[in-house]
């Protein structure tokens, strides 16, 4: 079976792993700890593909019907 590349699927938004500095900036903007972000499990297909590890923060850029483009973040947790 040919492995399916979920990153190329049109319904999968753009995910990127934030650098340490970016995470720190994000924490500052919202005045939060990383745990206060929405979570995503390490076993999530996107984490597997990107190689995200618990503790990482993912940036998600979605095309939004109402806002054009919307940006969200998720905190990778084990499981």
């Amino acid at each position: 079976m040919v492995k399916f590349d979920i990153l190329k699927h049109e319904l999968v938004p753009k995910f990127t792993i934030l650098s340490k500095e970016e995470v720190e900036a994000l924490r500052q903007t919202y005045g939060i700890r990383k745990e206060h972000l929405p979570w995503i499990r390490k076993s999530d297909p996107i984490c597997k593909v990107l190689g995200a590890k618990p503790g990482d923060v993912l940036k998600i850029e979605r095309n939004s019907e109402v806002a054009g483009k919307s940006i969200a973040y998720r905190y990778v947790v084990p499981g």
């Binding site: 939060i32 745990e35 206060h36 972000l37 929405p38 919307s70």
Partner: peptide, 13 residues
């Protein structure tokens, strides 16, 4: 507890 549910209300605020 301050945890974020949406980064901008309804995506467009």
């Amino acid at each position: 507890d301050g945890s974020i549910i949406q980064f901008k209300y309804g995506e467009d605020g």
